[in-house]
């Protein structure tokens, strides 16, 4: 248990009669990529939102480095080390790419109550922002208005902002969706590097990527984790093949 960084215990969330997450428990260990897969509407994004505190859970608990996060809001959880990306990009669209990255670096610093110093001339913030943009391949696009980015570039910027936080865990909701082949390859390379700085809970639909990257995989169906295991265990599990994988993934 010592290398467990994030632990989720018995999370529930209902929207009316719909049980979006139903008694979900899982953990994330140092150095690993733990993929969360499952059909559309299985509750994957809901689970992430519950972990980050953007959605209040009906019940259940979340621990980060053994600290119970109950009662702590999304900002507090981010400060404690939860870095996330959104399934639908969530950025300050009027700001430039660099400004979004600086915003993240500012969050890492812990306060924005500085009123007279030009933030875009703050060397430490700029360094962190530039290095994150560099890592995701947006180094050339710092001056672009975020609204003018392509869909794929926005995904990259999401990851860059999470990087500037230097979090203890990454929670990534479909970071490769819509990236294209080359972009997806780059992202896979990036995630492989990142797992060394912090473990990643990765939601991903691309099964090639999942099976290439993940150390463990959890399968979520109708809000319930029906299995957790290594890629090899998941691959051969007949129940999962029936429920989700179908014949996409060769045995």
């Amino acid at each position: 248990m010592t290398d467990t960084v994030l632990r989720v215990e018995n999370l529930f969330k209902s929207f009316g009669a719909l049980r979006a997450t139903n008694d979900v428990s899982l953990d994330l260990r140092a150095g690993e990529i733990h993929a969360l897969i499952g059909p559309n509407g299985a509750g994957k994004s809901t689970l992430i939102q519950q972990i980050t505190g953007h959605l209040a859970s009906d019940s259940g608990r979340v621990f980060l480095m053994e600290e119970d996060l109950a009662g702590i809001g999304p900002a507090g959880r981010a400060r404690r080390g939860l870095g996330r990306t959104f399934q639908i990009s969530s950025l300050a669209m009027e700001h430039t790419v660099l400004q979004n990255a600086v915003l993240g670096a500012l969050g890492r610093r812990g306060h924005a109550m500085s009123f007279f110093k030009p933030v875009m001339k703050d060397v430490a913030l700029l360094e962190a922002a530039h290095s994150a943009l560099d890592q995701v391949g947006l180094a050339q696009h710092g001056a672009v208005r975020t609204a003018d980015l392509s869909h794929g570039q926005r995904r990259q910027l999401e990851v860059a902002v999470a990087l500037t936080l230097r979090p203890k865990v990454f929670l990534m909701d479909e970071p490769m969706a819509g990236l294209g082949l080359e972009g997806a390859q780059q992202m896979i390379g990036l995630l492989t590097e990142l797992r060394n700085s912090a473990p990643i809970l990765l939601i991903e639909h691309d099964m090639d990527a999942v099976f290439a990257l993940a150390d463990r995989i959890s399968v979520l169906v109708y809000g319930e984790v029906i299995a957790t295991g290594t890629p090899d265990e998941i691959r051969v599990n007949p129940e999962i093949r029936r429920a989700y994988l179908g014949d996409d993934v060769p045995l």
Partner: peptide
């Protein structure tokens, strides 16, 4: 142009984003 200005206007554009970076 300050850190405060950047964060405040980011909060206007996207509150969730600001929360997610810990502010």
């Amino acid at each position: 142009k300050s850190a405060f200005g950047l964060a405040l206007s980011a909060a206007r554009q996207n509150e969730t984003r600001v929360l997610s970076v810990g502010m």
